[in-house]
């Protein structure tokens, strides 16, 4: 018997840390999604599969800009000292993933903009003529699409990994304290992005290809999850406790049902059937993947805050 009592009662901290609610998971999810979309778009550009204005890589930037702004809005809503937000850009802190993230985002925006200028849709170009002019100037640059593709790929990977590093750098929470988290978030970002792009792609072949890619990513994700848990479970007591939060503890139900079963296994099964043309493609599987991707962020952020070095014995 060990009775541990503390007199502290700080808001957001006691009895357990819950500094982050839905905003940060939304931000991480949308960041990951956009990262995945940029990687996909980048791949298309580099591979030169962008011929014909139908290619999704021309839809990505606008949707990406929109989703990223939503994510940034969520992040902003979470800040407690909003008037000082500009302080992020008065410095660069090499050890701070948040600082990295802020600056990466600052690069992602122009990249997406350039990407967008490569193919300004008529309904915008007709209204804002200067965009057309800029677009022409940019298109005049030699090999521009390949360059943009590379930039997309690099920034997408950085953004995707960053969303995982952000948490894993916060060593005080044993559940997050794993380098695998970066990979996990990257892969999950790729799978959700594939799912989304698969849904919006107008080109059948592209769509088909993305569904196959998604299946691959989902499979990899399963492996990464396994690695993630093996690493935690083979570590110290607090890490084991933290893994148990997801595996058997208070977050297990949500984790198994929404993340693993409905977010990975079922869509994997459905999409396997559809890519082998045994059933028709429907938005059901991709939507499940997307929802699963979001719940993954949510559950990891929440469970991570629950996990702790000091009050691990409370959880027994």
């Amino acid at each position: 018997m060990n009775e541990l009592t503390t007199t502290r009662h700080n808001e957001l901290i006691d009895p357990i840390v819950h500094v982050w609610g839905w905003e940060i998971p939304v931000y991480l999810f949308l960041g990951g999604l956009v990262a995945g979309m940029m990687i996909i778009a980048g791949y298309f550009f580099i591979k030169g599969r962008d011929e014909g204005h139908e290619c999704v890589c021309y839809q990505v930037p606008l949707i990406g800009l929109f989703l990223l702004s939503l994510g940034m809005l969520a992040l902003f809503l979470d800040l407690e000292h909003k008037a000082y937000v500009w302080r992020v850009y008065t410095t660069f802190k090499i050890k701070s993933p948040m600082s990295w993230g802020s600056w990466i985002l600052l690069l992602v925006y122009p990249a997406l903009l350039v990407n967008f200028l490569l193919n300004v849709p008529a309904w915008i170009g007709d209204r804002l003529a200067f965009l057309k002019i800029w677009s022409q100037k940019i298109l005049a640059i030699k090999n521009i699409k390949r360059h943009v593709g590379k930039v997309n790929l690099v920034l997408g990977i950085m953004l995707g990994i960053y969303t995982g590093i952000l948490l894993s750098s916060l060593g005080a929470r044993p559940l997050w304290n794993s380098a695998i988290l970066g990979v996990l978030f990257l892969v999950s970002g790729l799978s959700t992005a594939s799912a989304l792009v698969h849904m919006i792609a107008r080109d059948r072949a592209e769509s088909e290809m993305l569904a196959r890619a998604d299946n691959l990513f989902l499979t990899i994700e399963l492996f990464v999850f396994a690695l993630f848990f093996i690493a935690l479970l083979s570590s110290t007591e607090v890490q084991i406790q933290s893994a148990m939060l997801l595996l058997t503890g208070p977050f297990a139900a949500v984790f198994w049902v929404f993340v693993i079963l409905m977010g990975i296994l079922i869509p994997l099964f459905i999409q396997n059937l559809s890519v082998s043309h045994r059933i028709k493609h429907t938005p059901v599987a991709p939507i499940m993947v997307i929802v699963g991707g979001f719940v993954l962020r949510l559950v990891l952020v929440q469970a991570g805050q629950y996990s702790h070095y000091l009050n691990a014995h409370f959880l027994k």
């Binding site: 957001l12 407690e80 909003k82 302080r87 005080a172």
Partner: peptide
């Protein structure tokens, strides 16, 4: 105080839960 944006990363990073957000935001 006037550099802090209230992102709470430091709260989450402290194993001792020693920090909190002051009602004024920092």
């Amino acid at each position: 105080h006037d550099l802090c944006i209230g992102c709470k990363a430091c709260l989450a990073s402290c194993p001792y839960d020693a920090r909190f957000i002051h009602p004024e935001g920092y």
